[in-house]
Each structure stands twice: as structure tokens, then as C-alpha cells.
Computed example of a mutant assay.
Amino acid sequence: MTNPTRLAILVALLLLLPATAYGAGLAQERWMGGAEPSTQGAATAADPAPSGGATFERPVRPARPARQPVAPAPAPIEPAMVPGPTLLGPGAEGEEVRDLQARLAQIGWFSAGVTGFYGDVTVASVRGFQAKREVPVTGEVDRRTLDRLLAMTREPSTDELHPERVVAAAPSAALDPRCLVGTALCVDKTTATLSFVVDGQVRTTLDARFGGASTPTREGLFTVQRMSRDHVSSLYDTSMPFAMFFSGGQAVHYSPDFAAVGYAGASHGCVNIRDHAAIAAIYDQVSIGDRVVVHRS
């Protein structure tokens, strides 16, 4: 090795010695717990040294974000009750309206007379019933309203449906004693009337017409033997609706002729009635075996 080479190596070593000494001192400072320039700023803190008073630094955990309040879940919304299609409403007329009014009367929601007309009084009654039963309040009858009403009531009687046909009961003394038992058609030739009697109480009294001199209406106590709603006489070829036969071919029935000419004519022995609606109502309440009493008071 030449001298120039040796000289170059020596110079290089001299230049390296200060850097080596600095690195050794830095390592010793860290080993002994000396402070290290912080690169975390305010994010680090000094912990007490375990011994000898030395300290070391460690990162501080970042603060957790504040928990946001959770809004309560909204209560479920119940579907609103919607009324169904109208079955009966203002302006309607007929037997269905009578049935509605009679049923409302049974449970105290209709105090007016049953008329068969759906007017303001019926609307108010239906609205009251609906409000009480948690049914959509419309004043009109839909299927839900009708089902509730049917479940709470019974089939109205003829008297409930047609109170205008009910007459005040006649004193029992005015009736033939044979008319006071059960259901009876009490026919009085003297007054030319037929009284529909149930358990001694007169339900209805109607005008009646009887047979002429050559075909008189037989008198006495009889029973209803057969009934024919749309009967036509095979002997006279005449209409005899609501026929209730009590003695052979003699019957109580509606007579179009009696309705047309009144007492100017006579029957062939039957008891003629000229009130079509009333005799139809009686027919629906009479049964085979009920009494027929034809007498003179």
C-alpha cells in the first residue's frame, strides 16, 4: 500500500469519527430515557418512568365521538275504517227500510213510527247506532252496519213492521167467547167485520163481505184446513189470493171485486176481504189448525 493511499484512508476515518460519536450519543440518550423530539405535538403525553425518574412518551387515544340520541320508532298507524258500499240510504223506501227502522226501535235507537221511508229521523238513528258500535259514522247503512244490527236484533213481527195496521184491542166482552183461545179469525156477520185475535186481544179488524142468499157463509166454529197464497177458484175461475179454507170450499181471502164495488156485490159463500196488504199480513201469521169463528154479535 502506497503512502498516498494510506493518507486517503486516514482522512476518511477522521471524517467519520464525529458522525459515529453523534450516533452513539443519541443511542445512549434514548436508552437512558432522554426526551425525544415529539412528532405528535399535543397528541402525546409523558408517563411517569418506572424507576430512576426517567420518562417515556406514548400516543394518547383519540376521544370517542359522542353518541347521538336515537329517535324512538314511530308508532304503527292503524288503517282508518272506510265505509262500505251503501245498501240503504236517504230517500230509500219499502220493506227493507221498515225492517231497519223496526230493528233500530228494538234496541232503543228509533222512537218514531215505522214508516218505510228513509228520512232525516232514520239518518240520525243510524248515525247514533254507528257511533256507539265503532262503525264509520255516515248515516247510511253498509254491510258492516247491517251485520252489527242483525246480530243484536230479532226478526221484526208484522205489528212492528206495520204498526199502522194495529188497532186498539176491543173489550173481550165484545168478542165471541170462542175467539178468545189462541189465534182466531173472528168473523162477525152483524158488524160485517173480521177481527184477527191472538190470545184474546184484537190485533186487526177489517171490513168483510159474505155469501148471498143462495150461497150463504156457514156459521159456527171451524179451523183452517188448508192455505193457498195465490189461489184461483176452479169453480168460478176467479182470483182468491191469501185463501184460508175453513169449511169445504169456503175460505177467508182477498177479493178484487169487493175492493172494486164494495157491498154492492156478494161472495159465493167465502169471507171476502178488500184490504190486500192487511190480509197478506194476517195470512203470514196464521197456521193450519187455527180457529175460524163465524157468528153474529
Rank of each mutant, 00 (worst) to 15 (best):
P79K: 07
P79V: 08
P79L: 08
P79S: 09
M81R: 15
M81F: 11
V82A: 07
V82S: 05
P83I: 09
G84S: 07
G84F: 06
P85Q: 15
L88S: 02
L88T: 00
G91F: 12
G91M: 02
A92F: 15
A92V: 05
A92P: 06
A92T: 12
A92H: 13
G94I: 13
E96F: 02
E96M: 11
V97N: 06
V97F: 10
V97K: 00
R98L: 01
R98E: 01
R98Q: 11
D99G: 03
D99F: 10
L100Q: 00
L100A: 03
Q101V: 08
A102P: 01
A102I: 06
R103E: 01
R103A: 00
A105P: 08
Q106F: 10
I107L: 09
I107W: 07
F110E: 01
S111D: 15
A112S: 14
G113I: 04
V114I: 12
V114R: 05
V114Q: 01
T115R: 07
G116Q: 06
F117L: 14
Y118W: 04
Y118L: 08
Y118Q: 11
V121W: 02
V121E: 15
V121Q: 14
T122G: 02
T122C: 06
A124N: 13
A124I: 00
A124G: 10
A124C: 06
S125Q: 04
S125G: 12
V126K: 01
V126W: 04
R127V: 00
G128H: 00
F129W: 14
F129T: 04
K132G: 11
K132M: 14
K132L: 13
R133C: 01
R133T: 05
R133W: 11
